[in-house]
Amino acid sequence: MFKWLADWLVEDIFGLSVATKFGGAVHFFIYDTTKIIALIAVMIFIISYIRSYFPPEKVKEWLQGRGKGVASVLAALLGVVSPFCSCSTVPLFIGFVEAGIPLGITFTFLISSPIVNEISLVMLFSIFGWKIAVIYVFFGVILSIVAGVIIGRLKLERYVESYVFEVKMGETAVTAELTVKDRLQIAKDNVIETVKKIWVYILIGIGIGAFIHGYAPEELLVKYAGEGNPFAVPVAVLLGVPLYSNAVGALPIVEALMQKGVASGTALAFMMAMTALSLPEMILLRKLMKPQLIGVFVGVVSIGIILIGYGFNIIL
């Protein structure tokens, strides 16, 4: 349906040919925009309804008092289905530390949530199919667990700002059980709220992707980011770390890069670096921890993403 709509608008209404650079770019923009927004709206509604049975304070309760191995896996999986982004970093980090959850497990959750949230999963599936989506989520979960274990074993609690251990977040009381009607309304409101927040990222990301799709010289991209360049993955990660985007904005760019011949692992490593190590999150984390801990976090995650990028290139 979305392809038919894009074909009709581009060729019949606008009178353009998809074979031209401009026509191809416009077709890419319309097709991806309509498909992605529709799929995101449907999936957010379903996931929001399910999530209404698991309020955020439950995350902290589930992680308290569990063995480190079980807690690490649970933290990574909870990150996948959690709606948290960099704006939630401060209260989440304080809440986890105040609850006595080990630092490594806290980082596991903070890494997993932006890399493999439900929106990125839906978009990966819609753009690249189930195989890439499953592999990406699997490696994202593994990265968050391993990075969390490494950070935990380094015993870096001394680099957390002292006030974090002194803050008391309080407990959230559940005053009433939600009805099915309440949960449906919450799901509807969450769809509207989320789409309002991310539509700009969608348009910007797809716009950049459309430009790359239509105008970026294929030979240049393949030369510097194709499978023939052994340093393409670390270069992509280094470029992605200082940039800011979420999965919504990054995925259309990744799609266009891959269509131009950039290796799958290189493109997906670029996306991981953009989402897991965004500049706004680093700024927020600086309120909670000293530069030494931020440096270790960025270094460990960057190395992990580079290794995963090479792994993607071998598998895909």
Rank of each mutant, 00 (worst) to 15 (best):
T179A: 05
A236H: 06
G15A: 13
V296G: 02
A273K: 08
A38T: 15
G129N: 11
I50V: 14
Y310G: 10
L143T: 08
E193Y: 09
P56V: 15
M289G: 00
E166I: 03
I46H: 12
N190E: 15
F138Y: 08
I47H: 06
V149Q: 05
G295K: 06
T266G: 13
I30L: 07
L5E: 02
I46D: 13
I40S: 11
L16Q: 10
G304K: 07
M169A: 00
R158C: 11
E157D: 04
V237I: 09
V59L: 08
G79F: 07
Y49W: 14
W4Q: 09
T179F: 02
G148Q: 02
E157A: 01
I208R: 00
I151A: 02
F93S: 13
I101A: 14
E193C: 04
F45S: 12
K196R: 15
V301N: 03
E157P: 01
M271Y: 04
R286G: 08
Y310P: 05
K223D: 01
F96T: 14
I212R: 05
P230F: 11
S72R: 08
V298T: 07
K181E: 05
T175L: 14
S88W: 14
T179R: 03
T179V: 05
S112H: 06
I315W: 11
Y159Q: 04
E281Y: 11
F29Q: 06
L251M: 11
L268E: 03
I303P: 06
V296L: 01
F109E: 00
G205Q: 10
I198R: 03
A276M: 13
K188R: 13
I305S: 05
T179C: 02
Y163D: 08
F93C: 12
R286C: 03
Y53T: 03
A173K: 02
P83I: 15
A147M: 01
S144F: 00
N117G: 04
G205W: 08
V195W: 09
F29C: 11
F312A: 12
K181W: 01
V200P: 03
A267R: 07
F93I: 14
L285A: 09
V262G: 02
N190G: 09
P252S: 09
N229Q: 06
E157C: 00
L251T: 10
V298W: 00
A247Y: 04
Y244E: 02
V200G: 05
G15H: 11
G304F: 03
A173M: 00
I294F: 09
S162A: 11
G265Q: 11
V134M: 12
F109G: 01
K188S: 14
Y136Q: 07
L293V: 05
K196G: 15
V73D: 10
N246C: 01
A71V: 10
L78E: 13
I50F: 06
S264D: 06
L257Q: 07
I150D: 02
L284E: 05
V10A: 05
V90H: 09
R158N: 15
V70P: 00
L178M: 01
A269T: 09
P56R: 09
V160Y: 03
P56H: 10
